[in-house]
């Protein structure tokens, strides 16, 4: 069964939202993710743009300013909560992994 939209986040969604903790535009987001992940995660412009549009429609991020063709966004409270929820989920996964492989369970 397909999952509900943004119920869980993919790696790319997660990093895009992280990058939007501070206001930034599309190109800055791509650069910021590269820096955060040591170039491990590369977000393609197609993916980034469509996700920004979808996040914006869902109220996860909001448009802050438009300078020429450049548009800047920032995380909303709903977005921050979603990110936090995803972080907790990942953390639980990590903890489960640790407990399982160290024989704590």
């Amino acid at each position: 069964m397909p999952r509900e939209k943004f119920q869980t986040l993919t790696e790319q969604m997660f990093y895009i939202l992280m990058a939007l903790k501070t206001e930034c535009c599309g190109i800055d987001i791509m650069e910021s993710i590269k820096k955060m992940t040591d170039c491990r995660v590369n977000v393609g412009p197609g993916t980034l743009y469509n996700l920004l549009e979808q996040f914006s429609e869902e109220g996860i991020i909001r448009l802050t300013k438009v300078e020429g063709k450049k548009r800047s966004y920032i995380l909303t409270e709903k977005g921050a909560a979603l990110l936090e929820k995803e972080f907790s989920r990942l953390q639980r996964q990590t903890e489960d992994y640790r407990r399982f492989f160290t024989g704590e369970c």
Binding site: K5, T10, E11, Q12, M13, N42, V43, G44, P45, G46, T47, N50, L51, Q54
Partner: peptide
């Protein structure tokens, strides 16, 4: 560099 890098986002698009 691919333009689409996330299959989930690509399906939605």
């Amino acid at each position: 560099q691919p333009l689409e890098t996330d299959p989930v986002a690509q399906v939605m698009t």
